[in-house]
Design a protein around this nucleic acid. Structure first.
Lengths: 229, 229
DNA sequence: CGGTGCTTTGAAGCCTATCAACAAAAGTGG
DNA sequence: CCACTTTTGTTGATAGGCTTCAAAGCACCG
């Protein structure tokens, strides 16, 4: 639960989050990539990613997969205003992730009793919805190199919200998953990342990466931050 | 206000919407295409499109324009969960549109007093957010012909929510605007629409269009409806 | 050790953008 | 209402971007 606390404290550093303890159910570790299929019923538990990585996806009739959002440490997976848009949300947790499970009904009670806590959850959800909208905008109208740069900036932010990952960030997605996120093929993702590297915007070492002049990149792509702190 | 009433009655046909009268400010007619620039302050009036057409857009540093959402008769423009995602929303009203203006504070009071009315506004906003997510998903991962078919299906739904536009629907967007919506160039939009016509999926007469087998198209694109009625 | 999935590279071809020219339509001002 | 200007839509030629198909290297794991 520590990562969720750190994420929410970005909006209000001193906020008391102990009421969340009443809704705590369990801490699960996921040994391998594991999809969680969600249907439309309302009483799903609320999942918070403690460590690792996860993403939400939808499948097209022809078998293609689209990744709609991604979750780093401390993320509320499929909750709040960001999740409203995704009906029948499917979640995939990458191998090694740890997840805190909250009881939905008791969490709702806790939020209802403490309006300042509810506000934090709302702010977090709204910030996520804005980031998703910003990402989608670029993924619709930019060429491949910019699409990937945008996604990497966003990934960098997601990974930095609850923990300090250091200079070299993990790249928890395969090239195929980056393709499903950007609408590109894995082959073209590979070529485009290579081009970003020769242009000095990106360094890669195995499953880690480091970005070049992020400030310049952010202003070129009009990338905005919606979290404070 | 009649079109808003018809739209909200899709969720609850008998709902009493008279409390909205207290928040009514004025009815404006817009003679020509008119952008409404919104900044971050909170007390903007709430705009409901009475007739005509509008869309929200953002501008990139290089001058490119991205259209993020579109509004037909009865639409709440830039309000609720669908609008949270779009910070610094800009609205463009097409020539000839009529807009009902509501006072934001008094509208909030009216909704707070009548929870069933607030629920209707929330349902409308959620349905719009889902439609936007569905559209964005396709605009990221589908080829041009499917992108345009998807946008036309969505446009058809938007135009049918508050009024019955008949078999031949108005096409209130220029090809450039369709391009800004889909991430394609106007030239390619022109060519792709022509191809859709020769394939029998689309007919055009001036600024009106009619779609072929919409049921088949919807199932091929996995298009879903989020409004009831 | 083989198997499996991930990544890279090459070659070929389709898809989409760009540039340019023109036709058609719509707005503007007399 | 007409002449004028501006915008919108269409078409062709060309170039570049992206996908597809195929093959091979690599890392990881049983």
């Amino acid at each position: 639960m520590a990562t969720l606390v750190r994420r929410l404290h970005r909006f209000s550093p001193g906020a008391d989050l102990t009421p969340l303890n009443h809704a705590f159910q369990q801490l699960r570790s996921l040994d391998r990539d594991e999809p969680v299929w969600r249907h439309k019923s309302e009483d799903h538990p609320v999942l918070v990613l403690e460590s690792g990585f996860a993403y939400s996806f939808t499948l097209y009739p022809d078998g293609r997969r689209h990744i709609g959002d991604m979750f780093g440490p401390g993320a509320l997976c499929g909750f709040g205003s960001a999740a409203v848009a995704e009906e029948g949300l499917n979640l995939a947790f990458k191998s090694g992730s740890r997840v805190t499970v909250f009881d939905a009904a008791r969490l709702a009670d806790a939020l209802h009793e403490k309006p300042e806590l509810e506000l934090l959850f709302k702010q977090d959800g709204d910030a996520r919805a804005r980031r998703t909208a910003q990402r989608n905008r670029g993924l619709i109208s930019l060429p491949a190199a910019e699409k990937l740069a945008l996604v990497l900036l966003d990934l960098r932010e997601e990974l930095s919200l609850a923990t300090d990952p250091g200079e070299w960030l993990p790249l928890p997605l395969t090239l195929r998953e980056l393709g499903d996120l950007t609408g590109l093929t894995d082959v073209h993702v590979s070529r485009t990342l290579k081009k970003l590297q020769t242009d000095g915007m990106l360094e890669r070492r195995g499953k880690r990466f480091r970005m070049g002049d992020t400030a310049a990149l952010e202003s070129a792509l009009d990338y905005r931050h919606f979290y404070y702190g």
